[in-house]
Simulated assay, not measured.
Amino acid sequence: MRLPPLNSLRAFEATARHCSVNKAAQELHVTPAAVSHQIKALEEFLGIELFKRLPRRLSLTPAAEACLPKLTAAFAQMAEAVAEAQQFANAGRVLVSAPPALLSKWLIPRLSDFQTRHPEIDLRLSAKQTMIDSLREETGQTVSLLEEADLAIRFGDGDYPGYVTHKLFPSYALPMCSPKLLQGEHPLHTPEDLRYHKLLHYAADDATDAGRPDWAAWLKAAGVRGVNPRRGPTFNHVMLAMQAAEDGLGVVLGIPLMATAQIAAGELVVPFPLSLPIGASYYLIHNQAVEQEAGVKAFRDWILDHARNEPWREPPQAPSTGNAQMVL
């Protein structure tokens, strides 16, 4: 038996299900005229009338009512078949979304280890500012927290109902600078020595700065007086301010997770271990439905292992130094 064109059957099924040409057109992402043309072509092919055109509505003929359930079931089966085929195509592919700074400064430098352990997995990475909760709220986004990714690293409060959630790191800031500043005419030995050095700032224009402490808060916590907390240059992102600190321009309240390589190489040092918390943390999330998928499980276990063993995962313990009682 020769079958009619699939597009004509699809147009009829959608129109019959909705009893509306306009709604069918919206579902199929075509114009109402295109739907009407496909239905007319199908009626000519079959030699029967499928709809009774009544004022302001459509009514199915007995022939249309008879074939609609089987067509609907057939299209549902085709959709399932395509989805199953795609599962084979995507079996070794895992998409991970994360905030840009964490992705570039922490995750990417460690990926060679993941590739060595799991060469069979095609890992795809996406840097998205909307992985930051406060920015997502500001832009009014309402799509899935994963945004089509298999796993996502979110920067927020950890309240993600309906998702499997793992806390990776708390977020905190502490002074960081070039080792050059520990020497010279005014070596940086105590917090009071900050009066001789530029303080580097970053503005809260970027949502990654949300809840961050500033120099006024840090100096107060350290018990330091007589240091102007507002002097020094300001950058519009924490990574720029940390780069300036690495170049010896001053001292920044940096985020050590974003500078683990520079700290390990001695390009940045932490002169004082007093840290202050930032009002958000990093969380790994994914759907319950994919929890046992091989690629998702492999990446989840791998990143949780690295997070547990991250030297800067927790704030350092600060001893008392001079007049500053550094209690975390």
Score class of each variant (00 low, 15 high):
Lys52Cys: 10
Arg53Cys: 01
Arg56Cys: 00
Arg57Ile: 06
Arg57Tyr: 15
Ser59Asn: 03
Leu60Trp: 04
Thr61Met: 11
Thr61Ala: 06
Ala63Gln: 12
Ala64Asn: 10
Ala64His: 03
Glu65Tyr: 02
Ala66Trp: 05
Ala66Pro: 00
Pro69Leu: 10
Lys70Thr: 12
Leu71Cys: 02
Ala74Glu: 12
Phe75Pro: 03
Ala76His: 05
Gln77Asn: 09
Gln77Ser: 14
Gln77Thr: 02
Met78Ile: 09
Met78Phe: 04
Met78Leu: 15
Met78Thr: 06
Met78Ala: 15
Ala81Leu: 08
Val82Met: 12
Val82Gly: 07
Glu84Cys: 09
Glu84His: 14
Gln86Gly: 01
Gln86Thr: 02
Gln86Pro: 07
Gln86Trp: 12
Gln87Asn: 10
Gln87Trp: 08
Ala89Gln: 10
Ala89Tyr: 10
Asn90Leu: 13
Ala91Pro: 05
Val94Phe: 12
Val94Gln: 02
Val96Asn: 04
Val96Thr: 06
Ala98Trp: 05
Ala101Leu: 14
Leu103Lys: 04
Leu103Arg: 11
Lys105Gly: 05
Trp106Arg: 06
Trp106Gln: 03
Leu107Met: 14
Ile108His: 06
Ile108Pro: 01
Leu111Met: 11
Leu111Trp: 05
Leu111Ala: 06
Ser112Asp: 14
Asp113Arg: 15
Asp113Val: 01
Asp113Gly: 14
Gln115Asn: 08
Gln115Tyr: 14
Thr116Arg: 15
Arg117Asp: 09
Arg117Glu: 12
His118Gln: 13
Ile121Phe: 13
Ile121Gln: 09
Ile121Leu: 05
Ile121Trp: 06
Leu123Ala: 11
Leu123Asn: 14
Leu123Pro: 13
Arg124Asn: 03
Arg124Gly: 03
Arg124Glu: 10
Leu125Gly: 12
Leu125Glu: 09
Leu125Asp: 04
Leu125Lys: 07
Ala127Pro: 05
Lys128Trp: 08
Lys128Tyr: 05
Lys128Gly: 00
Gln129Cys: 03
Thr130His: 10
Met131Trp: 00
Asp133Trp: 01
Ser134Pro: 01
Leu135Asn: 02
Glu137Ser: 10
Gln141Thr: 06
Gln141Ala: 05
Thr142Tyr: 06
Thr142Ile: 11
Thr142Trp: 03
Val143Ala: 13
Leu145Gln: 10
Leu145Gly: 01
Leu146His: 00
Leu146Ile: 10
Leu146Ala: 02
Glu147His: 08
Glu147Lys: 02
Glu148Arg: 11
Glu148Lys: 12
Ala149Pro: 06
Leu151Met: 11
Ile153Asn: 09
Ile153Trp: 02
Arg154Thr: 06
Arg154Asn: 00
Arg154Val: 12
Phe155Lys: 03
Gly156Trp: 07
Gly156Pro: 05
Gly158Pro: 04
Pro161Leu: 03
Pro161Asn: 04
Gly162Cys: 07
Tyr163Phe: 15
Val164Pro: 02
His166Phe: 11
Pro170Ser: 13
Pro170Glu: 08
Ser171Cys: 10
Tyr172Asn: 07
Leu174Ser: 01
Pro175Leu: 01
Pro175Met: 03
Pro175Val: 05
Met176Gln: 12
Lys180Cys: 03
Leu181Arg: 02
Leu181Lys: 01
Gln183Phe: 09
Gly184Trp: 14
Glu185Ile: 07
Glu185Ser: 15
Glu185Thr: 12
